[in-house]
């Protein structure tokens, strides 16, 4: 039982980590909460459904097209909404409200274009399970865990060694200093949205293999990704990933004792507790009061 819950927690954590990684990446450079990130994932998932199930395009090509749509949507949101707001020096609170509005627009679009009923992508067979000792995992779940691991490692290497990754970390660390040494913060913001949304598109493909696609999935996912980021420390991608696994494990161990319908409530209580008691997260550094 214990090992099965551990495995379930890790699988849930892997999915949350994909959501949290893109979200934290965007937060770390731009310093505002991009709730609409969940909407980007949801719309990308619908794009996969459109290309693969409706238009009958080859799965791998559909997946690539879905990921590209994710990038276009994410960068488009930044260009159309956040950039004008930044230009008039709107506060993070205003941007927060606007991001919730964008999320609402994306969800309503899904509802309008694809209807309220759930969709599913039947590409990989969910049924066949593997048993590793006492634990049963489906091949799909193994695929998801391995892919997200590969993606997160790639992201880590990109942030550490590539020129753009380094510039992004510089902006995240101190925007003003970064601009003095000649890094254009606006350009890095665009890059953050592109890479963050690329991860979102990737997440959309993996998630829609395992779960149904429904109009409100974006909100459900971003709540989890957001909670994970707050737990781990919203300023860092590593924190978000760590928080994601902690959240996945806590939820799954929590429903060992509580009815399973309380899974979401567990996440919210943790989120609330962290916001109130340790808003900087586990890995975060408390800012010196001035």
């Amino acid at each position: 039982m214990f090992y099965q819950i551990l495995a379930n927690g890790l699988i849930a954590g892997a999915i949350y980590a994909l959501v949290a990684a893109g979200f934290s990446l965007i937060y770390s450079t731009t310093k505002f909460v991009h709730f609409a990130h969940g909407g980007v994932i949801a719309l990308s998932a619908y794009m996969l459904y459109l290309f693969y199930s409706l238009l009958g395009i080859n799965f791998w090509l559909s997946a690539i097209l879905a990921i590209i749509s994710g990038v276009i949507i994410g960068v488009g949101i930044d260009y159309l909404v956040y950039q004008p707001l930044r230009k008039r020096r709107a506060s993070p609170v205003i941007i927060l409200i606007s991001s919730v509005s964008v999320l609402l627009i994306l969800e309503s679009l899904n509802l309008m274009l694809f209807g309220a009923d759930v969709k599913s992508i039947n590409f990989l067979d969910i049924g066949s399970g593997w048993s590793i000792g006492p634990v049963i995992i489906t091949s799909l779940q193994i695929f998801i865990v391995i892919s997200s691991f590969v993606l997160l490692v790639t992201l880590f290497l990109f942030m550490k060694y590539s020129k753009i990754g380094k510039a992004m970390r510089a902006v995240a660390d101190n925007k003003n200093v970064a601009e003095i040494v000649g890094i254009s913060a606006e350009r890095i913001y665009t890059w953050s949205f592109a890479i963050g949304s690329l991860i979102a598109g990737f997440a959309a493909v993996l998630i829609s293999l395992e779960q149904n696609i429904e109009p409100t999935m974006g909100t459900a996912l971003i709540i989890k990704g957001f909670t994970a980021s707050i737990i781990g420390g919203v300023e860092s991608v590593a924190g978000g990933v760590l928080g994601a696994f902690l959240l996945g494990l806590t939820e799954n161990f929590g429903i060992w004792w509580l009815p399973s319908s309380y899974k979401d409530a567990i996440a919210f209580v943790i989120l609330f507790a962290f916001l109130l008691l340790r808003p900087e997260g586990i890995l975060g550094v408390k800012k010196n009061q001035k």
């Binding site: 707001l85 709107a90 409200i97 509005s101 609402l104 969800e107 309503s108 509802l111 309220a116």
Partner: peptide, 20 residues
């Protein structure tokens, strides 16, 4: 079925335009 989501989109769009 279209009216509901459309109404939400209108509210959200108006809010965005005002904020900007």
């Amino acid at each position: 079925s279209i009216l509901g989501p459309m109404r939400q989109i209108i509210y959200a769009l108006i809010l965005l335009l005002i904020l900007i």
